[in-house]
Structures are given as structure tokens and as C-alpha cells.
């Protein structure tokens, strides 16, 4: 957040357990900042965040451990294997000494193996992530987030770097896993087709302020214009599904 400009301003949100929330808005509207504030990757200049009724303002590392996050660019350690990358999701559970010695417990290894299997990458477990396709890399990132055993899953434009076929594939996988695990999901998405298909609630942000909060199926063309403005942007993304 800049000193002079507020990226997000006066946002009040209450997200219920198990909700699939999609955040939409133009690039630079504050979607990513809002997500990053939830797990304190961006420290808010003011305000409070509660998880399970508990104020998390002073428990940064513990809070992050309970919130999995998936990124647009996958953000994997490229020189490491799928296994090592997914194992990074268990770091909050082990000591620094064990990290240095690379000694993980049987339980940690079991969780990692289960999640690699869940995303269908068991055959690639010992491959370096640079050898994988974009879709496979995002699966690794999902497995890493799931290995944290998170209560909440944040996804910052998780399919923006993938082709349309892979977009569906990854979002199907994500929805399936989150429904099974009853995870709360907050994702920023660009494509309204996906918003309608995968989310139970949509939040529209414009210039750092919430201007729409409701059912994705009740989004009107007027709402879309309000969120994206009278620009080509919403024509490109917004009309899909309408």
C-alpha cells in the first residue's frame, strides 16, 4: 500500500465457513491487495481481521500457516522437485533444525504424498518443477497449499496464466477438493463464466471499494459495467457467460 494512495479502503467483509467467494474487478482495483491482507503478506495500515472470531493482527506466522495460497505465477521453487515444493507446505509444523537437516516426520511425508496424489501428480513427484507444464505447476501449487491443512484457501488469479482448457481443468479440480474438504475459498478471477460456475458469492471491487456483494447468478450487465467501467475490459471478460 502506498503512503499517499489507499489501494483498498474501508472494506467490511464477513465470509462464512465453506463459502466460495470470487473477487472481481479491473487490474489494480485492489483484488490482490485484499487477498494479501487476509494472510498478512500485505500489512494493512488500519483495520482488523478475525478468523473464527479471533483477532489475528498479532499472529502473523501462525495465521499464514492456516491459510493456503495459490498464485497466478505458481511461485514454485524451480530447481526443486514436486515433492520438495509440496513439502514446503509443512514448514510451519517443523523446527528450523529439522528444516536444515531436511528431516520431516512420517506424518508430514504422508500428508504430502496424499496431496500429490490428490492433484494427480504422483508420477511426477520426483521431477523438477521446471519440467512440468503450466497446469501441472499449478497443481503442485495447489498441493503445497493443501499440505498446510488450511482452513481458508486464497487464490490470486489462479488460472490467468493457463490456456482455456487448463483453466477449466484446474478450477474443476480446485472446486472438487475444496467441496470435499469443506474449505473456505476466496479467489480473484477475471472470467465471469468461471465466477458463475465455481463461486457461491461474488464481490466486485472498484478503486479499492466494494461495489457489489451478492449471488453470482444475480449479477446484471449493469453491475458488470459498474465494476469494470464502460471500457473494452469488461467486453473482453465480462460478456462471457451473459
Amino acid at each position: 500500500m502506498g503512503r499517499d494512495k489507499k489501494v483498498i479502503d474501508n472494506i467490511n467483509l464477513h465470509i462464512k465457513k465453506g463459502e466460495n467467494v470470487a473477487i472481481i474487478g479491473l487490474s489494480g482495483s485492489g483484488k490482490s491487495t485484499l487477498l494479501n491482507c487476509i494472510n498478512r503478506l500485505v500489512e494493512p495500515t488500519s483495520g482488523e481481521i478475525f478468523i473464527d472470531g479471533k483477532n489475528i493482527n498479532n499472529e502473523t506466522e501462525k495465521v499464514r500457516g492456516d491459510i493456503g495460497m495459490i498464485f497466478q505465477n505458481f511461485n514454485l521453487v524451480n530447481r526443486e522437485t514436486v515433492w520438495s515444493n509440496v513439502m514446503n507446505g509443512r514448514l510451519k509444523n517443523i523446527s528450523t533444525v529439522r528444516t536444515i537437516l531436511n528431516r520431516f516426520s512420517r506424518k508430514d511425508k504422508k500428508i504430502v504424498a496424499e496431496n500429490i496424489k490428490l492433484v494427480g501428480l504422483e508420477k511426477f513427484a520426483y521431477n523438477r518443477v521446471t519440467d512440468l507444464s503450466g497446469g501441472q505447476k499449478q497443481r503442485v501449487a495447489i498441493a503445497r497449499a493443501l499440505s498446510q491443512n488450511p482452513k481458508i484457501l486464497l487464490a490470486d488469479e489462479p488460472v490467468s496464466n493457463l490456456d482455456p482448457k487448463l483453466m477449466n481443468e484446474i478450477l474443476d479440480l480446485l472446486k472438487d477438493i475444496c467441496d470435499k474438504k469443506r474449505l473456505t475459498v476466496v479467489a480473484s478471477l477475471h472470467f465471469l463464466e468461471f465466477v458463475k460456475k465455481y463461486s457461491t458469492r461474488v464481490i466486485g471491487i472498484k478503486e479499492g471499494k466494494i461495489i457489489y456483494d451478492g449471488d453470482p447468478n444475480e449479477l446484471t450487465e449493469r453491475d458488470i459495467v459498474d465494476i469494470y467501467g464502460e471500457t473494452k475490459d469488461w467486453c473482453t471478460f465480462g460478456k462471457i457467460g451473459f
Binding site: 494472510n39 503478506l41 499464514r64 500457516g65 492456516d66 505465477n73 514446503n88 514448514l91 503445497r144 498446510q148
Partner: peptide
């Protein structure tokens, strides 16, 4: 971004 991702796991 890689550092950010590891930080986000609570490491």
C-alpha cells in the same frame, strides 16, 4: 514471488 509463496505457508 518464490519468497512470497514460502512466507505464505507460515514458514
Amino acid at each position: 514471488d518464490v519468497i512470497k509463496a514460502i512466507v505464505s505457508t507460515g514458514a
